[in-house]
Design a protein around this nucleic acid. Sequence first.
DNA 1: CGATCCTGGACATGTAATGTCCGTAATATG
DNA 2: CATATTACGGACATTACATGTCCAGGATCG
Lengths: 155, 155
Amino acid sequence: MRMAKGVEWALHTLLNLDMIGGGPVGSGQLAEAHGLSASYLNKQLQQLARAGLVVSVPGPRGGFRLARPLEAITLLDVVEAIEGSTQLFHCTEIRCCGKIGELSPPPTDTCAVNAAMRRAEEAWRQALAAQCLADIRGELDRVPMVRQVVRTVLE
Amino acid sequence: MRMAKGVEWALHTLLNLDMIGGGPVGSGQLAEAHGLSASYLNKQLQQLARAGLVVSVPGPRGGFRLARPLEAITLLDVVEAIEGSTQLFHCTEIRCCGKIGELSPPPTDTCAVNAAMRRAEEAWRQALAAQCLADIRGELDRVPMVRQVVRTVLE
DNA sequence: CGATCCTGGACATGTAATGTCCGTAATATG
DNA sequence: CATATTACGGACATTACATGTCCAGGATCG
Ligand code: SF4
Ligand code: SF4
């Protein structure tokens, strides 16, 4: 049970896009900045575009730019854009299988196990939604040179 | 990013073990009760045993029994017994790779992204730890026949 | 002793994330 | 208009890990 690596890629890339300013940046440059696979990062960026977090502009001098300020992008937005909004705990309804399943009446409501797991997952999602990328940028800015390095690499 | 199916297996099996009472039950019967793979469920039960949630007794008429009452087993106990205690968000330290990594000074503290993710994950773990299996048994008991069926199947 | 059942490692299989490739469409530039 | 550049998206290949199977021990009961 591990979160997709693409989430980390997306978060750093979004932060970099913010530091560079307005102009669109190509996926190649963004990948090179962190030594990532260009094609695969491009796929992740497409998902961010579909989710409305970035805007893609084709053509020469094209690339990706932020669709809205970091204040309006939460961690949950990024996680759901990359991972989708599937449940962490996915029920197989094993209560309906085997001997117990055969002897039991068909279940009428959602099971207690599933409900409990859902509650915990909801706490996680709320904690993700409560933190925006601007908060993280704030902590990042306390380290010197970061902004300058990003600008140098991405021009 | 999906939780291992073994967690669902373990939860149901623990609840079944409680309903049957004290005596040990073989992994074969427990698997048959829900139509699961006997060998694989056995592996999961071994992990529960290592985590101290169940006690294994070898020999004829052996099997597994609860190590402590359901009041003392939280959802977090089960999840960590099966999944291990690895982080949901596992950092690859890509900030140290690529052009940005080369130009940046070696990072001194844990990064802000990782910290934020850890906070959210902590909320999840706390929500898991706040719910014990006895709560779930309580909800389950509102459905008639459940207890009786389990006793019939597992003798 | 012999049957039963857990233990634990080795191995096979399935599935999803990760990574690559290439043809297509869109657009800036000359 | 011609061309180069870039995103788009589908079709693969590769890798990692969960899932499932099997077998040779070891413990325990009768
Ligand atoms: S009883 Fe709950 S956890 Fe078990 S299979 Fe059904 S929904 Fe899933
Ligand atoms: S900066 Fe944070 S999220 Fe990025 S690689 Fe380092 S620890 Fe991971």
